[in-house]
Design a protein around this nucleic acid. Structure first.
Length: 875
RNA sequence: GGGAGCUUAGCUCAGUUGGUUCAGAGCACCUGCCUUACAAGCAGGGGGUCACUGGUUCGAGUCCAGUAGUUCCCACCA
C-alpha cells in the first residue's frame, strides 16, 4: 500500500460526507430507543459561516455524534431563521443596487424579491455546515417562515391576544431611523460618544431680559419642547413658579413646571421637556398632561410639526440650530461632553426615542415558570455563572415590543376596522371579518372594510417557538415527533442571546407545551482574535472558515476550536490551534501507516507484545471512564484533551513503540489484531471530534461492509481497568524516562546498547517487564544487584536504584546530585514530622490523613537511607 | 449608579466537599536528534510567593472580610 506521509483531508472528507448522506445515517425517526435531541440555533437564512458558527456547531456535532454512538436515537434538527431586520436590510441593499427603491414598490413586489433572494442564497450556510461535518437530519430542515411554522407563530399571537397578554400601546420605543423600525432594548448598543452640552437660555414670557438657562445635548429637540421643568424645592428658581418660557427661534410659550425628577446638580438645574423624544420627558409629560410635539419624521428628518428645518436630517439641524441660536442670542455656552448614545445593533444608526403605537406582550406572568425552572435546576445553564445574569433579567423583565415596521416576516394578524378605532385579531381575513362583524354589530361588514396591520412580528417571536415548531408541536399538538423528541436535551448557543432567545424559548416551552424546551443550555464563548478583539468583518480579523477547512481539514479546525474553549469562556483564536488540530490528524494517520505497514506472520506474540497489549487495554478503559466523566460535566475541551493524550502519548509514544518489531522482522498476527482492536477503540473515542479521518481509518484498518460506518457504530463498553498493570507500567515508564535522561546527560548515543543493574526490593515486577525494558532501553543485559556496582553511574526511580556502566564517571557531579536530593528529602521529612508532632493535627485530622502522613515519613526515611548509602559508596 | 464574575507558568486555562511534594495541562520556550510511521516528528529540560492584606482552621490555591486590577450584564443624567 502506498500511503502519503502526510494526511490529505480534502478528498477524504467530501467522499465520506457523501456516503453518509447516501446511507441516510443521520436520519432519525421515532423508535423504541431513547431519543437525544438538539435543535440548532437557526442561523440567519442569508448568513454565511463565521468562526462563531464553527465553534457552536462543532460542539453540537460532538455531542450528537457521541450520543449516536452510545445507542441513543440522535436527532439534530437543522434550519434557518428568517431574521427579519437583517434579511430585509440585505434585500433593500440588493434592490438598491438594481436601482429599485423599497419605497417605490408594493409590499407584494418587495416580498417577491425577498423570497427570490431567499431561494437563491438561503441555506448556503447549511451546505457550509456539511463541510464541517455536521451530522444533522437534513430531511428535518426547518425555516421560521415555512407555512406550518408561520401558522404556529400567528396562532400563538392570536391565543396570547385572546388571553389578554398582548396589548396595543403607545410607548416610547427605540426608533432606528435607518431601518425605520422600532428595535427592542436588547438591540440597542449604548456607546460613549463625544458630544457637546449646549447651554441655552429661554426668555421668560412677559419679561424684558429675564431668562432661564437649560443644558441639553440635543439642541434640535427644542422644536418639540413643551415645558421647562425645575425641581420643586430648588430655591434658585422659586421666582419662576407658574411662569412661562419662550422657546427660542419658535417663539412658542411653554409652561415652567415642577417635577422632582429634575436633578438639581446637573447642568443648570433646569430641564427642557420634549415628551416626544425622550423616555423620561415622556413620563414627565404624562404626569403634567403636556402637549406632545413629534418633531421628527420616521427617517430622522425634522417633521412639519417641528416648523423649522423641515425635511432636514437631525444631525445637520443640530449644527445649524447651534449657529442660529447663537445668532439669536440664546446660546450661552457649549461644553465638550461625553455621553452615552444608543445605536442600533443592526444598522448602527443612532437610536431616537420615539412615540409609536406598537404591539406589546406582557411578560410578568409568562416569565415566572421560566425563572423558576432555572432557579430550581430543571433547566441547567452551563456554566452556572450565567444563572445570576438570567435571574436578574427575569426578575426585572419588561414587556416585549412585538412589532417591527418591516415587510419581511410574519405579518401581524390584526385587522383594523376602517373608519373606527376598533381592531380584531384573527388567523385569517375571513375570520377577521366574522369577528369584526360581531364586534361592531355591523353584519354587512366585508373584507374591504378591514385593513391588516402593516407591521411584522419581531424575529424572536417566531424563533422562541423553535424547539416546539420544528416538530409542528403547535399545529399538530399530539403528533409522534413532538411527543417523542420534546423536551429536547441540549441547547448550544452564545450567551449574547440568553435573553433574546433562550429565556423566551423557556417561557414559550412552559406556556405552550407545559414543559421545558430543553434540559441543558451550554453557553459558548465568543470567538476573538489573540488580541481579545471580537472577530468582525469590519476589523477583518476573522479568517474564512471555508479556507481553513480547505487548508487544514474539517477535522483539524474542529479540534483547533475545541482545544481551548471551556464552556462560557471566550475563545482566543490563533491559527496555531488549527495547526495543532491538523497535526493531530497527521499523527493518527501515521500511526495507521505504521500498523498497515507491518509484515504479519503467524508467530506467537512476544512477551513484550502481551505486556503492551494488557497495559493499553487497561489504559483505554481508564481514559474512557475519564472521558465519560468529562462529557457528563460538559467539559468538552477536557474530553478532547483526554482523547488527544490517549492517542498521542499512550498509543503512539508508548504502545506502538512497545510492540514495534525489530528491524526487518515480522510481527505476530495476534499482536496486530490486538493493536487494531485498540486502534479502533481509540477511533471511536476520537470520532465525535474528528468524524472524517476516523471514518476513513475505520474502513482502512479492516475490510468492512460499505455501510458499516464508525459514525453509527456502537461505542465499546470499557472494562474495569486492571489497576495493578497500570501502576506497574507507570513505574516502567518512569524507569525508561530516567534511563533516557541518563543517556542524554552522559552523551550515550541511542543506538549504543547498555547494561543495566537494578537494586530493588521489588524484583518480581522488574522481572516481569524484563523484555519490555530490554527493548525500550536497548539493553544488552539486565541484572539485579544488592549494592552499588563499580564503574557505573547511578540513578533512582522511586525507591529503586539503577546502575549503568560508564567509562569515566563524574563523581563530583554525582555527589552533588545526590546531595541535592538528600536536602530535598530531608526538608520533606521535616515537614511531615512537624505535622505529626502537632498534637492537634493528630487528634483532629481524619485517621486516613494521619496514616498517609506516617507512610510518607516511612518512605522518606527509607529513601534517605538509600541516598546516604550511595553517598558513602561514592566516598 | 446597580449587579455578577474573574485574577494560578510567557499564553490559554484545569484544580471537584479545605488533607499525599499540590502547585497541574496544552501551547510556547530551551537542549539534543533527518532513529527504517510521522521534522505537521522523536527524546529530554527549565519555568509560578496561586493579585495583595488580614482572618477562620491542626492544615488554605480552595472558606470569610477588605484592597487593587480586570471583564461582563442591567439601568442610564438632560
Amino acid at each position: 500500500m502506498n500511503l502519503s506521509k502526510q494526511y490529505q483531508p480534502t478528498e477524504i472528507e467530501d467522499r465520506w460526507y457523501a456516503k453518509w448522506m447516501e446511507a441516510q445515517v443521520f436520519k432519525s425517526v421515532p423508535d423504541e430507543r431513547e431519543p437525544y435531541t438538539i435543535t440548532i440555533p437557526p442561523p440567519n437564512v442569508t448568513g454565511i459561516l463565521h468562526m462563531g458558527h464553527i465553534l457552536n456547531n462543532t460542539l453540537q456535532d460532538v455531542l450528537i455524534r457521541r450520543k449516536r454512538m452510545q445507542g441513543y436515537n440522535a436527532c439534530w434538527v437543522p434550519g434557518t431563521d428568517h431574521a427579519s431586520i437583517a434579511t430585509e436590510a440585505k434585500v433593500v441593499a440588493m434592490l438598491k443596487e438594481k436601482g429599485i427603491n423599497k419605497q417605490d414598490i408594493s409590499r407584494e413586489e418587495f416580498l417577491q424579491h425577498a423570497w427570490e433572494w431567499k431561494e437563491k442564497y438561503g441555506g448556503i450556510i447549511l451546505s457550509q455546515l456539511k463541510k464541517l461535518g455536521a451530522s444533522c437530519d437534513w430531511d428535518r430542515t426547518s425555516f421560521t417562515m415555512d407555512p406550518e411554522y408561520s401558522q404556529s407563530v400567528l396562532q400563538v399571537f392570536c391565543d396570547l391576544y385572546e388571553e389578554g397578554y398582548i396589548y396595543r400601546g403607545n410607548r416610547m420605543v427605540n426608533w432606528d431611523p435607518s431601518a425605520q423600525t422600532a428595535v427592542s432594548d436588547e438591540e440597542v448598543n449604548h456607546k460613549d460618544t463625544p458630544g457637546h452640552l449646549y447651554h441655552l437660555r429661554y426668555q421668560i414670557e412677559g419679561s424684558e431680559d429675564e431668562y432661564v438657562t437649560i443644558a441639553t445635548t440635543r439642541p434640535e429637540t427644542i422644536l418639540g419642547d413643551t415645558a421647562i421643568a425645575i425641581h420643586p424645592e430648588d430655591e434658585r428658581y422659586t421666582h419662576l413658579h407658574g411662569k412661562k418660557a419662550i422657546v427660542p427661534l419658535l417663539g412658542r410659550a411653554i409652561p415652567i413646571i415642577l417635577d422632582d425628577y429634575v436633578d438639581r446638580e446637573f447642568g443648570t438645574g433646569c430641564l427642557k421637556v420634549t415628551p416626544a423624544h425622550d423616555t423620561n420627558d415622556h413620563e414627565i409629560g404624562l404626569r403634567h398632561s403636556l402637549e406632545v410635539i413629534d418633531a421628527l419624521n420616521p427617517d430622522g428628518t425634522i417633521s412639519e410639526a417641528g416648523q423649522l428645518y423641515v425635511g432636514q436630517d437631525r444631525f445637520v439641524v443640530r449644527k445649524q440650530i447651534k449657529k442660529d441660536l447663537d445668532a439669536a442670542g440664546n446660546l450661552v455656552k457649549v461644553e465638550d461632553y461625553n455621553h452615552s448614545v444608543g445605536y442600533s445593533e443592526r444598522t448602527d444608526a443612532a437610536i431616537e426615542p420615539r412615540l409609536s403605537a406598537q404591539w406589546f406582550l406582557n411578560m410578568q406572568e409568562l416569565s415566572k415558570p421560566a425563572l423558576e425552572a432555572v432557579n430550581n435546576g430543571e433547566v441547567q445553564l452551563i456554566p452556572p455563572k450565567f444563572i445570576n445574569t438570567y435571574r436578574h433579567w427575569m426578575e426585572n423583565v419588561r414587556d416585549w415590543c412585538l412589532s417591527r415596521q418591516l415587510w419581511w416576516g410574519h405579518r401581524i394578524p390584526a385587522y383594523y376596522v376602517k373608519g373606527t378605532n376598533e381592531h380584531v385579531v384573527a388567523m385569517s381575513e375571513a375570520e377577521a371579518v366574522e369577528k369584526a362583524r360581531a364586534k361592531t354589530g355591523n353584519a354587512q361588514l366585508t373584507a374591504a372594510d378591514l385593513a391588516q396591520d402593516e407591521d411584522v412580528l419581531d424575529t424572536w417571536a417566531s424563533s422562541w417557538l423553535w424547539p416546539i415548531s420544528v416538530f409542528n408541536g403547535l399545529t399538530q399538538p399530539d403528533n409522534e415527533d413532538i411527543n417523542y423528541y420534546y423536551p429536547t436535551n441540549d441547547l448550544v448557543t452564545a450567551p449574547e442571546i440568553l435573553f433574546f432567545w433562550v429565556a423566551r424559548m423557556i417561557i414559550a416551552g412552559y406556556k405552550f407545551k407545559g414543559q421545558k424546551p430543553f434540559n441543558n443550555v451550554y453557553l459558548t464563548g465568543i470567538v476573538r482574535d489573540d488580541l481579545r478583539r471580537k472577530m468582525s468583518k469590519s476589523l477583518g480579523n476573522s479568517p474564512d472558515p471555508l479556507d481553513l477547512i480547505e487548508q487544514y481539514g474539517a477535522d483539524g479546525i474542529r479540534v483547533g476550536m475545541l482545544l481551548a474553549s471551556p464552556a462560557g469562556n471566550d475563545l482566543l483564536y490563533k491559527e496555531s490551534l488549527v495547526e495543532q488540530g491538523r497535526n493531530f490528524a497527521n499523527k493518527i494517520w501515521n500511526a495507521f501507516r505504521l500498523v498497515k505497514g507491518w509484515e504479519v506472520a503467524d508467530i506467537e506474540p512476544s512477551e513484550r507484545d502481551i505486556l503492551a497489549l494488557d497495559w493499553m487495554e487497561a489504559r483505554v478503559s481508564e481514559v474512557s471512564a475519564e472521558i465519560d466523566d468529562h462529557f457528563e460535566k460538559f467539559r468538552i475541551s477536557d474530553a478532547l484533551m483526554s482523547v488527544y493524550k490517549l492517542k498521542w502519548d499512550d498509543f503512539c509514544s508508548w504502545f506502538l513503540e512497545f510492540v514495534k518489531p525489530e528491524y526487518g522482522q515480522p510481527i505476530a498476527r495476534k499482536t496486530v489484531e490486538g493493536a487494531i482492536d485498540l486502534f479502533e477503540k481509540n477511533l471511536q473515542l476520537i470520532h465525535p471530534f474528528m468524524p472524517f479521518i476516523t471514518e476513513e481509518l475505520w474502513h482502512g484498518l479492516r475490510d468492512r461492509a460499505a455501510n458499516d460506518f464508525i459514525c453509527v457504530s456502537k461505542l465499546f463498553k470499557a472494562k474495569t481497568p486492571d489497576m495493578s498493570v497500570l501502576g506497574e507500567m507507570e513505574l516502567m515508564k518512569e524507569v525508561i524516562s530516567a534511563v533516557r535522561n541518563f543517556r542524554m546527560s552522559k552523551n550515550i548515543p541511542n543506538k549504543e546498547v547498555i547494561e543495566l543493574f537494578i537494586q530493588t526490593d521489588d524484583q518480581a515486577t522488574f522481572e516481569k517487564y524484563r523484555s519490555l525494558l530490554t527493548w525500550m532501553l536497548k539493553l544488552s543485559k539486565m541484572s539485579f544487584v544488592t549494592e552499588k556496582v563499580d564503574g557505573t553511574g547511578s540513578l533512582r526511580v522511586q525507591a529503586h536504584q539503577l546502575f549503568i556502566p560508564l567509562g569515566a564517571v563524574d563523581i563530583e557531579a554525582e555527589k552533588e546530585k545526590i546531595q541535592k536530593e538528600i536536602v530535598y528529602t530531608e526538608g520533606f521529612l521535616q515537614k511531615v514530622l512537624k505535622k505529626l508532632s502537632n498534637e492537634r493535627f493528630v487528634s483532629n485530622a481524619p485517621e486516613k490523613v494521619v496514616a498517609m502522613e506516617k507512610k510518607k515519613q516511612a518512605d522518606a526515611e527509607a529513601k534517605l537511607e538509600v541516598l546516604r548509602r550511595s553517598m558513602e559508596e561514592l566516598g
